[in-house]
Design a binder for these strands. Structure first.
Length: 232
DNA sequence: CTCCGGTCGT
DNA sequence: ACGACTGGAG
């Protein structure tokens, strides 16, 4: 298969069906990075509750957040779940910002994916997906974000193995797509929107999915990963 | 591989 | 009631 053409076709199909996503416009880099940590294995609606609580108290700012104790922080982000773990992770990220840019993410402008990505991965609590989300959505750097939906959709379409590693799947996109942050931003956003609405873990809703045209056939009743017949 | 965890849809 | 949710660490 021509991977580049295939990935562009998938992108166009989702864009045509869903329209542009406009993810995280008008938000500060720190707010976006914070959201990226809080949303780990968590529905975004829960993250919004936590972000709202922080906003109401004027805490969507690294210098303000840094003054809280771990316990206070945990209380604010409680609706996001795993709040004790995430409080520690936010703390580690704040320490990272203190070290690298004096708690001002504008100071990270000028960094590249090659230098900043490994540095972020050194922070306990920031794994590959969170790092790429921060690079792409907070800093506008061309680092493709891979998530559970990306793996599930591509696997169910027979394009990649189910157990493909994060880095391999990221390169599956980055090897053939130009390093365009706007393209990466919209592509991942479209995948998440498509995944959330049509590609649930248990049972997909393939008949109405924007990507259904790429399946040779499928069973409407048992539209799970294994029941989809991969296209050639 | 297991735990973290409140919240929401089924 | 039950499992999934834009993961990551020990």
């Amino acid at each position: 298969m021509n991977r580049e053409a295939t990935l562009r076709d998938y992108y166009q199909a989702m864009l045509a069906a869903l329209g542009p996503s406009r993810w995280w416009p008008g938000r500060t880099p720190f707010e976006i990075a914070l959201g990226a940590i809080l949303t780990q294995n968590t529905a975004w609606t829960n993250v919004e509750k936590a972000m709202h609580a922080l906003r109401e108290s004027g805490l969507l700012d690294p210098r303000a957040l840094a003054r809280l104790t771990d316990e206070e922080l945990a209380t604010f982000i409680r609706p996001a779940g795993a709040f004790r773990v995430k409080a520690a992770r936010v703390r580690n990220f704040l320490l990272f910002l203190h070290r690298t840019c004096d708690l001002d993410m504008d100071g990270l402008r000028g960094e590249t994916v090659e230098t900043l990505r490994p540095a972020l991965l050194e922070v306990s609590g920031i794994g590959p997906e969170t790092a790429d989300s921060i690079l792409l959505y907070a800093l506008g750097l061309p680092s493709f974000v891979v998530d559970a939906y990306t793996r599930r959709i591509l696997n169910r379409h027979g394009l990649v193995p189910e157990d493909i590693a994060y880095g391999e799947l990221r390169e599956f996109f980055m090897d053939v797509l130009p390093p365009d942050p706007a393209l990466y931003n919209e592509y991942h956003a479209l995948i998440v929107r498509t995944g959330k609405n049509w590609c649930a873990k248990r049972q997909g809703k393939c008949p109405d999915c924007p990507l259904a045209v790429f399946l040779e056939e499928f069973s409407p009743l048992t539209c799970t990963g294994k029941s989809i017949i991969p296209h050639p």
